[in-house]
């Protein structure tokens, strides 16, 4: 039976992915900052899925603590999902260094720090899969969220390099760009159904994508098309757009 480590285990998407893996017989280790909240998620998952769920404290911003977390994982789960992220507020981040650094640290530096440690162990084992939840926002910087976007761009780039390296050690890296996701938070909003995935759709796509060793997936096909167009726009045109 396999196992998965989910970093950032209290978000709707992370919980949906945990559910998908549990219902496929995997053991799940959830790691996140707030242990009390994690405990509630754990009891819920155990009651609903009758599976094995473990929880660990993890703070993406506390880079020094990452070493201990990875050391405490014995055995190391065969799959690691990097599901944490911080959207932040672009207008605040532009003026406030703290907010700006938080966006960059959570989305990029923190992810790099923990995945460096984990990938070294996977290399040694010559087995393991890393799944990174990145974002379509990382494909081209837009004025409304380019600090978040550029941190995700850096993360996507890191994942692609890591995939290249780990390939030679029999390990795999999957990059996921979910697009809009209909979390419980957005239940009452009118989201475009063509562009919005359900958390369990994301979870199923991740599970399938990881199993079939896909490199990069967009959960909804529409996003691949949209991002293709957005990448093709000449910069002279793009810079004039308000988006």
């Amino acid at each position: 039976m396999g196992s998965i480590l989910i970093l950032g285990g209290t978000s709707d998407i992370a919980i949906s992915i945990a559910e998908e893996y549990l219902s496929n017989g995997y053991q799940v280790v959830l790691a996140a900052r707030n242990l009390e909240r994690l405990g509630i998620v754990k009891s819920d998952l155990q009651i609903r899925y009758n599976g094995v769920v473990e929880i660990k404290p993890f703070d993406a911003e506390e880079l020094q603590s990452h070493h201990d977390l990875v050391g405490s994982l014995d055995p190391l789960p065969d799959i690691t999902l990097c599901a944490f992220g911080y959207l932040g507020d672009q207008s605040i981040a532009k003026k406030n260094t703290e907010e700006c650094l938080k966006i960059i640290t959570v989305n990029f530096t923190g992810a790099v720090s923990i995945l460096n440690l984990i990938s070294e162990r996977y290399k040694k084992n010559r087995a393991g899969t890393i799944i990174g939840l990145s974002s379509v926002a990382g494909e081209r910087g837009r004025q409304s969220n380019y600090i978040y976007g550029s941190s995700k761009a850096a993360f996507t780039s890191y994942l692609s390099g890591l995939r290249n390296e780990l390939f030679h050690f029999g390990c795999h890296v999957l990059t996921v760009k979910p697009g809009f996701v209909d979390t419980k938070m957005t239940k009452h909003l009118e989201l475009n159904p063509w562009l919005t995935a359900q958390p369990n759709q994301v979870a199923k796509a991740v599970f399938r994508g990881a199993n079939s060793k896909r490199n990069t997936i967009y959960v909804l096909k529409m996003w691949r098309f949209i991002m293709f167009i957005i990448r093709q726009l000449p910069e002279t045109v793009f810079k004039r757009l308000k988006m």
Binding site: I40, D44, I47, M185, K187
Partner: peptide, 28 residues
């Protein structure tokens, strides 16, 4: 809206006691 507050907390299968957050639905 408590619909987002929907976690199962305790299910005692022997005594038949169930505890959950208030937003959990009977269907679940």
């Amino acid at each position: 809206s408590t619909i987002t507050f929907d976690k199962a907390l305790i299910f005692d299968k022997k005594q038949g006691i169930f505890k959950c957050q208030s937003g959990m639905q009977l269907s679940d």
